[in-house]
Design a protein around this nucleic acid. Structure first.
Length: 572
RNA sequence: UCAGGGAUCGGCUAAUGGCAGGCCGCCUGGCUUUGAACCAGGUAGUGGUGGUUCGAAUCCAUCUCCCUGAGCCA
């Protein structure tokens, strides 16, 4: 791997540790990390933070990063997840060292080490069932009691463990435990289980094993086998570190250095795999790749770019403090990336028909539009203009509030890249709703400039009615309506905070003609609206579907809201 | 109650005994054929109390608050 030129990157506490290790020669200058997911679910944005950290470190320090599947629980894991995880890591832009590794490849070695521990009198077969074991464990403040099986002879333990492996005992009847200290204030040290009996088929080792090592017994040794220098994990494993160190010491093997950091939390979101699964199972979302899901696949389908994801991970930093990142940071990372690259287009989400009364019935204009003002290299395109066009309902007010500089009766605005128009009449239905606008245009303003130098304050987007392609547009909002989804009245759970408006469907939306040829995954900025991408699942030729990735910032909406909020604030 | 961690502007994060800085947000203003982007300015912080020191976010003591931990899950 190449090291990137990122000298300017701020030094977080992990990079400082590595700097120091390199200075003192602790790992002989090596930097070797790993990303160790369990293949029991899809990766989410929290994993992305860990991925960017581990792979990023390897890149920056000229080291290596392994992808290792921690597949020690066959009842929950599946090959399908292995595939999706590899795909997601690659999509984020990272390449792992050699082939993916699997903890299951170390089962034979782990077994031999268990035998070694038994022989050294450091492990024993325990016949306690789960409930009895819990009773013996003690509490946070009270020490545990030794298992009655703790002092079995080495010979008996060896025999029993071999028979466990041979499948002589049913699930749950026996375990292999480490002999550490039942009085330790650290519950992880109270004779933790090393192996449990599980007559289950493993996605890689099949029915070869009926005993499976526990995560705690597997993880540290796997790191050791792979000669990992910096074993980076989340805060909840801090309490486990003494146990990992105990295994390494008793086994006399290479010692990786574990460093813990705080996992990612985001406002209006949940990160736990269990709950993500519930959202899918209970059909609150359409699947793991629902664009509202903060899974990597969900974000990808939503229109997020790998660059935006990496930039986000860089912006949030790494620390031990349990923090919650504002969802805005994620959204801004996307906006920043797409602003520079996304081709512009016009689409009218909530159309209001406008008839240009002084424009000839059969006349058509081809106007030149800039594809991206931020990037002149991608050139221009032609946009057809005709007598009947659509504009956004929001861009007209019969009774405009102060500061509104879009269209209103008698007012003039610029149609982007086209002409100045002046509203002469608002046509209404019986209920008094404005259904259509009559306007006149000024032929001298073709392209959007007035030769007489007069200015208009507003520029609005539009689409020619008869030239428009039609699309379905899906507007997404936060899945939860509160910054903290767990902020619920007593007796309720996060489901009470599910945002009923997290998906708004717009059909038959008029969009610029060229968009008819857009391909799944293509990204655009719909001017004055936001960034949209062609859905990769439901869009097809003749049936365009756009997902809103993120809206543009809207300072007018903010200003108007503030104005409306003022009188209320006074009342209070 | 025990053990292990943690606490710096509204949010995130620097400063490692020597001017508390950056990003985001928010507010002003500029610019503008996207009320976007961009540019400029502003706002605002060391959890409390004592101590050491010429000097403390940083070291010491003490208090407070928060997180994690009693799976044969990871």
């Amino acid at each position: 791997m190449e090291s990137t030129n990122e000298a300017a990157r701020p030094r977080d506490f992990i990079r400082e540790i590595i700097d120091e290790d390199n200075r003192t020669g602790k790992h002989a200058g090596r930097v070797h990390t790993r990303f160790p997911p369990e293949p029991n679910g899809y990766l989410h944005i929290g994993h992305a933070k860990s991925i960017c950290l581990n792979f990023g470190l390897a890149l920056e320090f000229g080291g290596k990063c392994n992808l290792r599947f921690d597949d020690t629980n066959p009842t929950k894991e599946d090959e399908e997840y292995v595939q999706s995880i590899e795909e997601d890591v690659r999509w984020l832009g990272f390449e792992w060292n050699e082939q993916p590794f699997y903890a299951s490849d170390y089962f034979p070695q782990l077994y031999d080490w268990a035998v070694q521990l038994i022989k050294a009198g450091k492990a024993y077969v325990c016949d306690l069932n789960a409930e009895e074991m819990r009773e013996h464990r003690g509490t946070l403040t009270a020490p545990g009691k030794n298992s009655p099986f703790r002092d079995r002879s080495v010979e008996e333990n060896l025999d029993l463990f071999a028979r466990m492996k041979a499948g002589e005992f049913p699930d749950g009847t026996r375990t292999l435990r480490a002999k550490v200290d039942m009085a330790s204030p650290n519950l992880n040290m109270r004779d933790p289980v090393l192996y449990r009996i599980l007559h289950a088929t493993h996605h890689r080792t099949g029915d070869q094993w009926c005993i499976y090592p526990m995560y705690d017994y597997t993880h540290g040794q796997s790191d050791s086998i792979e000669r990992i220098t910096h074993s980076i994990c989340t805060l909840e494993f801090e309490n486990h570190r003494p146990l990992y160190d105990w295994f390494i010491k008793e086994l006399g093997i290479y010692a990786p250095q574990q460093i813990e950091f705080a996992r990612l939390n985001l406002t209006y979101a949940m990160m736990s795999k269990r709950r993500l699964l519930e959202l899918v199972r209970e059909k609150h979302v359409s699947g793991w790749d629902d664009p509202r899901m903060l899974t990597i696949r969900g974000l990808r389908r939503r229109g997020y770019t790998p660059e935006a994801m990496r930039s986000f991970c860089e912006r949030i930093g790494v620390a031990k403090f349990n923090s919650t990142i504002d969802m805005l940071v994620l959204e801004n990372a996307l906006r920043d990336d797409l602003n520079k690259r996304a081709q512009r287009a016009m689409a009218v989400l909530r159309p209001l028909k406008v008839v240009i009364t002084n424009y000839l019935e059969d006349q058509v204009d081809e106007l030149e539009a800039i594809n991206n003002p931020e990037d002149p290299t991608i050139g221009t395109r032609k946009v057809p203009f005709a007598r009947e066009i659509y504009i956004e309902q929001d861009d007209f007010r019969e009774d405009p509030p102060k500061g509104f500089y879009r269209l209103a009766p008698g007012k003039e605005v610029r149609l982007r890249y086209a002409y100045f128009i002046t509203c002469t009449e608002a046509v209404k239905d019986a209920a008094g709703n404005v259904t259509e606008l009559r306007c006149t245009y000024d032929p001298a303003t073709r392209g959007g400039n007035a030769p007489d130098g007069r200015k208009v304050q507003g520029t609005i987007h539009w689409v020619s009615a008869k030239h428009a392609a039609r699309a379905e547009v899906r507007l997404y909002d936060h899945l939860f309506s509160k910054p903290d989804p767990d902020d619920v009245p007593a007796g309720q759970d996060y489901r009470a905070n599910l945002n009923p408006n997290s998906l708004e469907l717009l059909s038959n939306v008029p969009v610029e003609p060229f968009l008819a040829n857009a391909k799944p995954g293509d990204r655009f900025q719909f001017e004055r609206q936001g960034y949209f991408c062609v859905d990769t699942k439901d869009s097809a030729p003749g049936k365009l579907v756009f997902n809103r990735s993120v809206s543009l910032k809207d300072s007018w909406a903010k200003q108007e809201k503030a104005q409306q909020g003022k009188p209320q604030a006074k009342k209070k």
